[in-house]
């Protein structure tokens, strides 16, 4: 049993880290704030050139042929840098939708809302060329489809919660596209949830690092505020949440890649391999939602008045965490899935 990142995964993480530091510095990312289009074309191309979007595409088709676990490692890096754009949809569309792997077609994810009374929103309506349309989770057998942006009627919001992840209002119910994607919608949904959770882990780590640095630098009452237990205990709790979430995320990615492990582990709980995979993925998403929401909220609190200013970047992590804890599925839905698989 080996739960360590492999040498290749460490190289993938560090290589991507170097590209992100060059292309997506905090200053560079923040230049896109409140733009209707948040994707920086040159930066996006750099990610494509690094193989981020063709990561899951088989080598025989010109991709990197890497695993979901590798993808999770990569997306954590992007989340940590708040990289804007439809990263996850494009990664999952590559190999099926022309241009996605090359960075020329930007693909978002559109999930049919399970809450009928509230009309859905569409992520990044000015950036995306098309969307992977996931049917409602209740509609188990329906396939996932692809829909061009032009086929969806949505209006860019005047103002979005997250200035780096603008959304549009859908002007009608989301309809399925005509292009059916191979594989089940169920499997696609799990992968999308996992990669979203990975982005959240990156956000949580970023927020915690900002908080720790601030708590060491900021003096009040003649002491760094990080020497007060009132502050340091908050941060210790965030680290505990983050490490538990990250461990479950990696576990869920591993069982997604290896159905044989899912089958062995599922046996212990009386679950099929697919059920075990769902329990692991939903649990991971739930824990990563909590880690990201909590670490970013704590970051605002630890920064005090400064945390309430636009200038200090913690609000950007907070808002993105809110976006990712909301759009594909809510924490409550994840908790329901885990509970239904606990018996």
């Amino acid at each position: 049993m080996n739960f360590q990142l492999s040498e290749d995964q460490v190289a993938l993480r560090d290589g991507l880290q170097a590209i992100v530091e060059g292309r997506f510095s905090l200053d560079a990312v923040r230049e896109r704030e409140d733009a209707s289009s948040v994707v920086d074309k040159a930066g996006w191309q750099a990610l494509a050139d690094a193989g981020v979007f063709c990561l899951f595409v088989p080598e025989s088709l010109g991709g990197l042929g890497l695993s979901i676990t590798d993808g999770v490692v990569a997306v954590e890096v992007l989340g940590h840098a708040l990289v804007p754009g439809p990263i996850i949809g494009t990664m999952l569309a590559a190999g099926t939708i022309a241009g996605a792997a090359e960075g020329t077609t930007l693909v978002g994810i559109a999930a049919t809302s399970d809450r009928g009374a509230v009309p859905g929103v569409l992520e990044l309506p000015s950036d995306c060329d098309g969307y992977l349309v996931l049917p409602s989770a209740r509609d188990g057998a329906a396939p996932a489809t692809y829909l061009a942006r032009s086929a969806i009627s949505a209006t860019l919001a005047t103002r979005s919660l997250d200035p780096l992840h603008p959304v549009g209002r859908l002007n009608g119910p989301l309809v399925s596209g005509t292009l059916e994607l191979s594989g089940t919608a169920d499997a696609l949904r799990r992968r999308a949830l996992l990669l979203t959770a990975a982005f959240e882990v990156g956000l949580a780590a970023f927020a915690l690092e900002l908080s720790v640095a601030y708590a060491k630098d900021r003096y009040q009452f003649g002491r760094p505020i990080g020497s007060f237990q009132a502050i340091k205990h908050l941060l210790a709790d965030e680290l505990a949440r983050l490490e538990m979430a990250r461990a479950q995320l990696h576990y869920a990615a591993v069982v997604t890649d290896a159905p044989d492990i899912a089958a062995i582990d599922g046996e212990v709980y009386g679950l099929s391999s697919t059920q075990l995979e769902w329990r692991a993925v939903a649990g991971a998403k739930l824990l990563c939602d909590q880690a990201a929401l909590s670490a970013t909220k704590t970051a605002v609190q630890v920064h005090g008045g400064m945390g309430y200013t636009w200038e200090v970047p913690v609000h950007l992590a907070l808002k993105r965490a809110r976006v990712h804890a909301t759009m594909l599925a809510t924490s409550d839905q994840m908790a329901d899935i885990v509970a239904s698989l606990t018996h």
Partner: peptide, 10 residues
């Protein structure tokens, strides 16, 4: 129950 199960799994 779901939260606790996910936490223990984590």
């Amino acid at each position: 129950i779901g939260h606790l199960a996910a936490t223990f799994d984590g």
